[in-house]
Design a protein around this nucleic acid. Structure first.
Lengths: 254, 254
DNA sequence: CGAGGTCTTGAAGACGATCAACAAACGTGG
DNA sequence: CCACGTTTGTTGATCGTCTTCAAGACCTCG
């Protein structure tokens, strides 16, 4: 039984920018005019099927994509066909807000399961940056949180053993999904195969499998299909050396 | 004989924001009023000795630091005392521009060798974001390039073997240092011990040493003390699957 | 000239990758 | 509703990379 089916359906059918607003209001006050200009800028809502590219590497898109429902991953390809996932995005996240200022996309973005996205033209972002300094800082903040998350992943990849790395990923997903209301009681849906988790953690699918079994046996998580339940959050976070500071989940003036 | 002693000395004695301006002008046109407000905002020039903290984790600084000369590293600490370096910064880089919008620092920054820094009060950054939209976008861009670099490191850490990872680091440093004029003929100074490189690559000092020997024996680099010379850039970059796109070294309107 | 840091080397062992095969779950169409 | 094919998850065995521990060589600088 999917934990957040009803909530997610709301977001899906209703205002596409609902979860984005929630993500922003977790971090600062957003006034009505800021909300209006941002929501009015969203358009081009469309469905993307599982595994399909949302943005392709090398492309120079004229708009940025917001996830309305579903998950997405940024990925990098190697010559030998191997793939490295450098970020996982959830509803309410921009997957390529940075495309606004960067030249060409240095990586692709693909859908993890079917998802719905909305777009905002770079033209509008430029206009916002001219007329709404505070809102601009909030959008900037979102990209800074992306960067902080990258650093955290670097920390996990470089300094933690496999179990710690996966524990960190789960702790992070739990924190982020809880923040926007897509997890409750430390239960959430994670639409990624073990192979994809391996691509994100930089480890082989086989090793992902054995590591998951390890943390399952330790009683830290229950995990059936896409349903993840964290049974012992304190221990999981200890294993991951998880500290949610980097997610900036506090409402302060920015 | 240090390649860039004279140039660096210029930057050091002269305008502290010189290399920052160079970094910006590599990416877009900066007009005189933008240059003036940015340079006028820099103050608090000070020396930081080797290994000293520039910013401490958990701190909430009221200003951001620009490197005038020398190198610095962002690092994360583990409970067991291990340290992970998530970014290396060179002259002209802000090391904590993100501190302007983020709450508390989620990592520390330390000097790699003696360095000189200048600071810009967050108050000034906020004023710039209100009055200079284009300059604001350029500062935002700098943080986006940081994030792109993080992603590239994640790619290298997760998908490349040790030699490729170190080759990637050298390719990146060469590209960045060349861009701001601190490397020429693919020669540059890298003020990091092999142990520190290990902290950045997520590998043991011993393995760093053996890997360096490997790429030395392959004739890709000459490396004596802090002097690095890349002998076969194409092969080094091939080994690293290096593509400089992510550094955004082209002048386009942002 | 001595001392401390850095680099280098060797040997042993742990962790994770790879290869291969099988089981289970899932979705689809008959 | 069952049969089937495909994807995902699971297990075992072997191999390679990288870690750890330990010691010695080399610098550099006071």
């Amino acid at each position: 039984m999917p934990v957040q089916a009803s909530r997610q359906a709301d977001a899906d059918r209703g205002e596409p920018g609902m979860l984005l607003m929630r993500a922003l209001r977790l971090r600062d006050v957003v006034d009505a005019s800021e909300e209006r200009v941002l929501l009015d800028s969203l358009s081009g809502v469309r469905e993307v099927p599982d595994q399909a590219d949302i943005v392709r590497e090398g492309q120079k898109p004229g708009e940025s994509c917001l996830i309305v429902s579903g998950f997405a991953a940024r990925y990098h390809l190697l010559r030998n066909g191997r793939r490295q996932i450098s970020a996982v995005h959830i509803p309410g996240d921009f997957v390529d807000l940075h495309g606004f200022l960067l030249g060409h996309m240095d990586h692709g973005v693909k859908a993890l399961g079917d998802c719905t996205i909305a777009t905002i033209p770079h033209q509008r972002l430029r206009a916002i940056s001219a007329d709404f300094p505070h809102l601009t800082r909030l959008l900037w903040l979102l990209t800074l949180i992306d960067a902080a998350t990258h650093r955290r992943w670097l920390f996990a990849a470089g300094a933690l053993p496999a179990a710690g790395q996966i524990a960190h990923f789960l702790s992070e997903m739990n924190a982020r999904l809880t923040a926007i209301g897509l997890a409750s009681g430390h239960r959430f849906v994670l639409p990624m195969s073990q192979a994809e988790i391996g691509e994100a953690m930089g480890m082989s699918p086989v090793h992902v499998n054995r590591t998951i079994q390890e943390i399952r046996r330790a009683g830290l998580v229950a995990w059936r299909g896409q349903q993840v339940e964290i049974l012992d959050l304190p221990q999981l976070q200890a294993l991951a050396e998880f500290d949610p500071t980097y997610l900036n989940l506090e409402q302060v003036p920015r």
